[in-house]
């Protein structure tokens, strides 16, 4: 199992030597996960808030559906997205297959249920007295919503981190939709899959460690933000 040790050395070498292939994969990963996170947070937080805060008919069913979608396998999402953006598919004319935005669409679908479900849970678990408190201090309906969202910020941050973890680490969508094209859509995870297939276990480990390093950076930044 000396490839573990070699993997660690390789990771350091790749980072220090500025290996262009590695940095291209890192850039692709960061870019695509940023797109996906931005889109899923922008859509997921309001939807999750509505699901957790408002009482409307069909809410339980919607909640059940979202919770079920948490278990969507990434390869399945990849296939679904492929079916839509393949040139033969309904969105084929947009030319999204084998592009980073294409992957981002799939990853958005992956992250969206996570963001919605966890935001809804965070909002639901707010103290029942919060509403009374805000109303009693004179908040109108809009101010009540804004303050509730802000009070739930720690839960929502946790939702974002959780979704980010899923997006960063998924390989099924990136492989299926992105095609693992070198210099273009090769992400860290598809690169790991490729290196593993090639039997370059040390290289796979190295890339895995780099992914972990990025995840650490993001998480650390978030927890700093949370500390404020």
């Amino acid at each position: 199992m000396d490839f573990l040790y070699h993997g660690l050395l390789e990771a350091i070498r790749l980072l220090l030597s500025g290996d262009p292939e590695t940095y291209s994969a890192v850039a692709a990963t960061l870019k695509v996960s940023s797109y996906a996170m931005a889109a899923s947070l922008l859509m997921g937080i309001p939807l999750g808030f509505v699901l957790g805060h408002l009482r409307f008919p069909g809410r339980r069913q919607a909640r059940l559906a979202v919770d079920t979608l948490l278990s969507l396998p990434t390869v399945f999402i990849g296939l679904m997205v492929y079916a839509f953006i393949s040139r033969q598919g309904p969105l084929g004319h947009m030319g999204l297959l084998f592009t980073l935005p294409g992957i981002a669409i799939g990853q958005t679908l992956l992250a969206l249920p996570v963001v919605i479900a966890l935001t809804a849970t965070a909002v639901e678990s707010m103290d029942a007295n919060l509403r009374v408190t805000l109303r009693s201090l004179g908040a109108n309906r809009r101010q009540l919503m804004r303050a509730t969202l802000w009070e739930a910020r720690h839960g929502i941050l946790a939702a974002a981190l959780n979704a980010y973890g899923r997006v960063m680490t998924e390989v099924g969508i990136s492989m299926m939709v992105g095609g693992n094209i070198k210099w273009h859509t090769r992400t860290i995870t598809t690169a790991i899959a490729l290196e593993t297939n090639k039997g370059q276990f040390a290289m796979g480990i190295a890339l895995g460690l780099i992914l972990l390093l990025i995840a650490f950076g993001v998480t650390a930044a978030m927890s700093l933000l949370r500390g404020k």
């Binding site: 007295n129 009374v132 408190t133 201090l137 004179g138």
Partner: peptide
């Protein structure tokens, strides 16, 4: 807004 209530459980905002 001219009427203000201190509820039994005074929840503080975070």
């Amino acid at each position: 807004r001219t009427v203000v209530l201190l509820p039994q459980e005074s929840h503080l905002l975070k």
